Computed example of a mutant assay.
Amino acid sequence: RVPAEVNHAALSSIKQDAKRLARGQTGDGPNTLGVLAALAYPDRVALRRKGDAPRYVMSGGKGAILSESDPLAGERLLVATDLDGDPREARIRQAARLSDSDLRGSFADQIGWHKLCVWSRREGRVLARQQERFGALVLDDRAWSDAPAEDIAQAMLDGVRQLGLMPGKAAALFLARARLMGDDFPDFSEDHLLETLEDWLPGHLAGVRSTADWKAFDLLPALTARLSWDDQQALDRAAPAHFTTPLGRKIAIDYSETQPQIALRLQEVFGTTRHPMIAGQPLQITLLSPAQRPVQVTTDLPGFWAGSYADVRKDMRARYPRHPWPEDPTQADPTLRAKPRGT
């Protein structure tokens, strides 16, 4: 091993290769073992990884490990002159020490600074860094504090692909409505949205660069921006976000199940003789008592009035005598009022 024991045959080969590579150079040329080895094996220049174990990454991109008992185990830079050939993490059987100045002096034209914005799956955030590299080796690494917003947004797209869309309540409602539309409507399936992120999301990602940011992000403006004015009008007609009751109250329609649905007080739909339709199917209505407890679920109000309403009325009159329970609800006015006490 170097420096305890030199393999003279390997060293001779290294010197011959180094002389061949250095023929076109001016001056005296390289004269240290590390430089000679690096010139002979430029893809085997190795940089020690972080941690206690003497593990290295080589300039060609492969990993290598040195015995902890090797005299070179503490070196930051070295050149692996003999490896055991393991494709995953080769064991270094012989190496030469290489100084930082020798590396820079010998490969100045191959060392440069690179700027990068990347999504870190391990850290769950966008990393914006400036790195000085020689091949796969990162010789210096610094924060890139003024990275352009466009670069950060592009990197964040990889985070979105990993995390999924994660829509909030309003965005989830919009998606459920949009997915009820036909083939002529823009595709809002999750697969399509993730496949086309570059087309609709980057311009909305200002300030978003971590998992926490994405969880708090309001996806709705970016989604609705995909619609033309005509598309938005068509959506509001076919799958409205709210149902307007006979009293003018707006109730959000729940599209999360197989059928659009709402819940409201039974007396608020007195006088309704045609069941409301949403997105081409009956709206599922949960009718509530004055105490806001479900008393009936129906997709056919006229059928309910003509059928089981009589039994419901009998029960409700006993429980809530101050509230109106007309015999013919189709002729009654909708109300949320109760009779004054004492009447």
Rank of each mutant, 00 (worst) to 15 (best):
A10D: 12
T286S: 04
P30K: 01
L194Q: 11
Q110A: 13
P334G: 05
W200D: 11
A239F: 09
Q233F: 03
A222Y: 09
R125S: 05
V297E: 11
K15E: 14
P167E: 04
R249P: 00
A306I: 00
A90V: 01
G307S: 10
I152D: 01
A252R: 13
H275I: 06
G203M: 11
F188V: 01
A4K: 02
D84A: 06
K215C: 03
I92A: 07
D315R: 14
G124D: 05
D254E: 04
L223S: 07
R226F: 08
A306K: 15
T245A: 08
Q331E: 15
A279T: 09
R48M: 08
A234F: 03
L201Q: 07
R88Q: 13
M58W: 04
I152W: 02
E327I: 08
F107R: 07
E268W: 03
D28Y: 03
P334E: 03
E327V: 11
D231C: 09
R23N: 09
D213I: 03
D102W: 04
D86C: 04
G105E: 04
K62P: 03
D218E: 15
R209D: 12
L103F: 05
A212Y: 05
T343D: 14
D311S: 12
R129P: 02
W119N: 03
A291P: 00
A178L: 08
D300Y: 07
P30R: 07
F243V: 02
A18F: 08
A241L: 10
D230L: 13
M156V: 04
L47I: 14
R88D: 11
K15A: 14
P221Q: 10
D187M: 08
D199N: 12
S210I: 03
D187T: 06
P3C: 09
H323D: 11
F270N: 06
W325M: 02
D70H: 15
Q261H: 05
Y320E: 01
L77G: 13
I65F: 07
R133K: 15
L336V: 07
G105D: 08
P282Y: 12
P186K: 01
L235G: 04
T211G: 03
D218R: 14
G168Q: 11
I152M: 10
R319V: 00
G207P: 10
E195L: 11
Q284C: 10
G85S: 12
A263N: 00
L201P: 05
K50A: 15
